[in-house]
Amino acid sequence: MLELRLVQGSLLKKVLDAMRELVNDANFDCSATGFSLQAMDSSHVALVALLLRSEGFEHYRCDRNLSMGMNLNNMSKMLRCAGNDDIITIKADDGTDSVTFMFESPNQDKIADFEMKLMDIDSEHLGIPDAEYQAIVRMPSSEFARICKDLSSIGDTVVISVTKEGVKFSTAGDIGTANIVCRQNKTVDKPEEATIIEMQEPVSLTFALRYLNSFTKATPLSDTVTISLSSELPVVVEYKIAEMGYIRYYLAPKIEE
């Protein structure tokens, strides 16, 4: 028996909008610790990892570990029928092959039940080791989204370089080139507007902008984004989900030959 009640239902709506462009079908894993997902995009170039901890739910009942295969587009279609202020409850009975999404309006005068068939998805679960990163950039998520969007109008790939000057985003294409440098800036009114750069050593990596633009679909989830870079590893783009967990995107770099 599974029953997860999320008062801030809009979070789940945003989480689905943040993943459905990258991943079509995925397994949601439910355990005592929380509701999670790990899935690669179809080309195995990117990976998304979601964690919503059980403490973040108003009510969290998960009698035994459960994995539910869902088509994220279909799930998103159903969640879009929930109001932004609705309470969303995810329910599944043992042994059934469907999941129910229940939407309750804030004053309980409207209750909706959407039932969706589950799928069998044999997804490989990857082991992601905790790593030391050569550079970690924390910046406003809207700023990062703007940079990725602007640069993708000039080129297909972006070189992200972190030096003591700051973090530089560079691209080149048929019409020309573009360089954007963001410097560390802690003297801001609100902490979420700060750009903070922790650099152990300079690092520079090249990534496909198409994937980074998919990742920025998570911008509504958090005011800030953290970008962790290391020359031997995929970049990690993380959006914290307030009081609940996170959505992390991993992207393999392009390798110069």
Partner: peptide, 14 residues
Amino acid sequence: RSSQGRMLSYFGNS
């Protein structure tokens, strides 16, 4: 020329 890396060459199956 640059080639696109793949997840599986960084993270093995757990």
